[in-house]
Amino acid sequence: MTTTRPRDLLLAFVVAGVVGNLLVLLTYGTLPSFPAPAGATLGVLGLAEAAAGWVLKGRVDRRPGSKPVEPLVAARAVLVAKASALGGALVAGLWAGLLLYVAPRAGSVTAAASDTVAAVVGLVCALVLVAGALWLEHCCRAPDDPEDPDAVR
């Protein structure tokens, strides 16, 4: 399994941002207002994935006092991390699309001002999810075997 490439996440972010901006452009007048903590759940998930990464890193590195990690547990964690990174990039793109629409109108439209706060919170929390997922994926990498003389360093 390969690591998540930043360009794939950036592509997902940009495509979702363009689509989100077009959807908001066409339907903003009919949408209800966005609550400020709407995207906070993603931030909590990102922090949980980062914490899981710290725990798994100790187990993968075989630190004293920690149980070795089962290969299937590490594979599942990587699967969750890859899905969360892509999902977080997509949702961050949607929040960015909303932000690009409402931020210029925040001074003149009251609803746009409150939606700007929600979009910023959602964007930041989605990026926290991406960062936590990438950290979890990084922590699940197998350590280099120091006894292998043919290992590339």
Rank of each mutant, 00 (worst) to 15 (best):
V128R: 02
T27N: 14
A81N: 01
A126D: 04
V109R: 08
V91T: 13
L11H: 10
G97Q: 02
A74W: 07
A52R: 10
A133C: 07
L45E: 07
P64N: 03
V60D: 12
L123V: 12
S84W: 10
A81S: 05
R7D: 15
G46M: 00
C125E: 02
A38Y: 12
A96Y: 14
G88A: 01
Y28C: 10
M1I: 13
M1E: 13
A38M: 14
A112W: 03
A16M: 08
K67Q: 01
D61G: 09
P149E: 02
R105M: 11
A52H: 08
A96W: 12
A74P: 00
G122H: 04
L42R: 05
V24E: 05
R105H: 03
T27Y: 13
L47I: 04
R7W: 03
G122Y: 08
A83N: 12
A50M: 09
P37C: 02
A113Y: 02
A83P: 15
P71Q: 05
W135T: 05
A74E: 03
G53P: 01
G46T: 00
P68L: 02
L42W: 06
L127E: 11
N21V: 01
L79K: 03
E147G: 15
L42H: 07
V102N: 07
C139V: 02
A89M: 01
P37H: 02
S66F: 14
V15M: 02
A96C: 13
G58A: 05
A92S: 11
D144Q: 11
T30V: 04
L45C: 05
V24S: 12
V44S: 03
P146V: 08
A16Q: 03
L72C: 09
T41F: 15
G20T: 00
T27L: 14
P146L: 07
L42D: 01
A48N: 11
V121R: 11
A103D: 02
A85V: 00
V78S: 04
P68A: 09
E70R: 12
L127K: 04
A92W: 04
L26N: 10
A51W: 02
A36F: 12
T116H: 08
V117Q: 14
V24D: 01
L127W: 07
A85I: 03
W54E: 15
V124H: 13
E70I: 09
L45H: 14
L45A: 08
C140S: 08
G17H: 03
L90K: 13
K82F: 05
G39T: 05
C125H: 01
L129I: 00
V55E: 15
L56S: 01
A92N: 08
Y28F: 03
R141K: 08
E49L: 13
P71W: 06
A92E: 11
W135R: 11
A142S: 07
A133T: 00
R153E: 05
G107T: 01
L26A: 08
V60M: 13
T4S: 03
G122T: 10
S84G: 13
D148N: 11
E70A: 14
L31W: 12
T2H: 15
L99H: 00
T27R: 15
R105Q: 07
L94Q: 06
P71E: 05
W135F: 11
V19R: 01
L11M: 08
V18F: 05
L123H: 07
V120L: 14
L72Q: 11
